[in-house]
């Protein structure tokens, strides 16, 4: 079982501000689904942003190795080429750039990074259709501006569609369940499950247990005040749902 991600003693702070991650250790292997749960303000979204390379945060200490390479030295786009995918909590709207042109640019840069030629128009359209079906996305979305006028559920489905197009080694899904009704949750959950292979891995970040009914994790971590304070099997999620986070915090 190959190691995909190894985080050692990761500290990070807001560029102009306080420390948010205070020493994270986390290893993710091929074929694994990890979940990170925790109360608001624990640092969950900071962790995902730091892994994707958002420059509003600064890493002050620690190491992150991704597929044997130093992740922290890579630009966000290089991380994407290397196989990191971040599903955004709040996907960004880009008026004037169609979903098709956006994904064409992304897929072709991925191919270029791998030394592959660009896809032909026909190959690309076929790929779009196939991947849109995974999240039951209407094809009329291809010509619309990226996320422009999409409902909350449509935006999250679009995230999973993009993930399917890029087939990442590690998908980090940041609060993908927020703003979703039960139907959208099921579609998103099924989409992620369909994309699971023995060679890739996912890191699901969530406040609630409900998404984990659809994406069943192998390992759950509780993040609190910038540290992972507990790691356990899937049953931990149920316990959090029933009792909240307080009992874990009190037991520290």
């Amino acid at each position: 079982m190959g190691k995909i991600l190894e985080i050692k003693n990761l500290h990070a702070k807001l560029k102009e501000g306080r420390e948010i991650l205070k020493g994270i250790d986390l290893t993710i292997n091929e074929g694994e689904v990890h979940a990170i749960m925790g109360p608001n303000g624990a640092g969950k979204s900071t962790l995902s942003a730091v892994l994707a390379g958002r420059d509003t945060f600064e890493v002050t200490e620690g190491e992150v190795t991704f597929m044997g390479e130093n992740l922290l030295e890579m630009l966000p786009e290089q991380r994407s080429w290397a196989g990191i995918f971040l599903g955004f909590q709040y996907p960004v709207e880009i008026p004037g750039v169609s979903n098709t042109n956006f994904m064409k640019a992304a897929v072709n840069e991925h191919r270029k990074a791998k030394g592959l030629p660009e896809l032909s128009a026909a190959e690309f359209i076929r790929m779009m259709k196939e991947k849109m079906a995974i999240v039951q996305m209407n094809q009329s979305f291809s010509s619309r501006g990226v996320n422009v006028g999409f409902s909350g559920g449509e935006k999250k489905r679009n995230e999973i569609f993009q993930m399917a197009m890029l087939s990442p080694k590690l998908a980090i899904l940041d609060e993908t369940d927020s703003g979703l009704d039960v139907d959208a949750l099921r579609i998103v959950g099924n989409g992620v499950t369909q994309l699971k292979t023995p060679q890739n891995a996912s890191l699901v970040i969530t406040h609630y247990q409900r998404l984990l009914d659809y994406i069943v994790p192998d390992i759950i971590h509780i993040l609190y005040d910038g540290r992972i304070v507990r790691t356990s099997g899937a049953e931990l999620a149920r316990e959090v749902e029933d009792k909240g986070y307080d009992w874990i915090i009190k037991s520290l």
């Binding site: 420059d55 955004f88 960004v92 880009i94 750039v97 956006f102 840069e109």
Partner: peptide, 22 residues
């Protein structure tokens, strides 16, 4: 917008041109 595009593997320079085009 730029970070979103970069996170999908669109290099910063190309992302800027795409946004200006749009």
């Amino acid at each position: 917008e730029l970070f979103y595009m970069q996170s999908r593997g669109i290099s910063l320079a190309n992302a800027k041109v795409l946004l200006k085009q749009a």
